[in-house]
Write a protein that binds this DNA or RNA. Structure first.
Lengths: 126, 126, 126, 126
DNA sequence: GTGGTCTAGACCACC
DNA sequence: GTGGTCTAGACCACA
């Protein structure tokens, strides 16, 4: 109901983000069964095809998995291949550091920056 | 030369980002004349039209200006170029944190990770 | 159909003016769906790319907006479309007065001329 | 010296406008001899080629005329073929009225509008 | 079918 | 040689 969609980013991605958030916040717990594609589609007010694509994509990312006839479930953390995760982690970090370096920041600078941001966030949360 | 283009974001936007970076890092100074559209196009390995579009967009953003027959120039230090570096920094950090989050890491985790990497590097350097 | 293009001003700008006019006159109402890029292109007898550029520019100006797969629409009555008619009126008057001036006629002369024409027309109608 | 040139309209046209203005204001009287191309060029701070083009264009428009070796002169009003002027006048008026009509204004409306503008101008001048 | 992006190649006005 | 415009035709993601 409270769905607001932007016009310059694909619908299915916005849906993916919404679902990711529900999982991140624990709204949908690991192992939990998801509503059917059709139900989710009407809830979001989109075409079932679009919802289907969003879920398929999330499955590809390892956040969901499907049991053929039983439905879709939120993945357990372990189900994402640990090796793959490590690999992606490194590529993300490398990309970030390369970018920072292009702006003239060293690894040390980057670490300090994030440290500061983290502490700020903590204070806000209190 | 060292141009690597991703496949899921428009070429002309990636070019824009590259140029923004050169300006942000001072590689291209305010008032400086840019190579011609055609030269930039061959350097990047894209069609002149694509380069043209990227430059036109940057002009619209106020980062460049064109003297019709003399060439294109980096805008003089108005507030526009001033904030550029800060803006790019934020976009890099946001992208990194989004990626980390998709792997299940929080800002705090990311900060801790970089901290560790930084300390390792320091020890190595001694 | 009734498209006449001048040779010394870019096609895409003339197209923009034509569309602005249709919107200003209410021929195309706010919220209304436009024909597709391709349709408009053949109607105007120009390349789809050129029409695309014109529409993209109008979108940048806020007169149109695009739903990526659904089509393009005239913007809802924000202040933007409101001022359009007034703006076009002024540009037409300015163009006329500039032309008259180039022939040696002042604003006063132009006003007198139209006044005379108007009275003639009135007499004819009686 | 006090020359300011815009970047998005051809230099030679801006120069033409400047000269037209000098003629319109009587700064340069009909029959008067103009300075040489070179002098005008340095005065305006442009390339002699550009000044040459501006003057040639004004000649084509009938505002100036050249006596082969004696130099260039401001045209007498009568030297512009009267018939041609009438023809242009009509085309300008027609274009204006067409434009006004497209916005929903009649000839009468247009006449009234200019009348009002003229009176405003007069009051300002007092 | 919709908008958006890209290439290849041409032509133009301007200086 | 410079930026700018235009065409023709292709391909893509999205719904």
């Amino acid at each position: 109901m409270g769905w607001k969609f932007s016009d310059d980013v694909p619908l299915y991605q916005q849906i993916m983000d919404g679902i990711k958030q529900r999982i991140a916040t624990g709204d949908w717990a690991p192992g939990q069964k998801l509503p059917s594609v059709r139900e989710l589609a009407v809830e979001a007010g989109v075409n079932p095809n679009t919802m289907q694509k969003a879920l398929a994509e999330l499955e590809r990312e390892g956040l969901l998995y499907a049991k053929r006839t039983a439905g879709r479930f939120v993945a357990e953390r372990d189900e994402i291949t640990e090796g793959l995760q490590e690999e992606m982690l490194q590529s993300y970090v490398k990309e970030f550091l390369d970018n920072m370096e292009s702006l003239g920041y060293s690894l040390k600078d980057a670490a300090a920056l994030l440290q500061r941001m983290s502490q700020q966030e903590e204070r806000k949360g209190e």
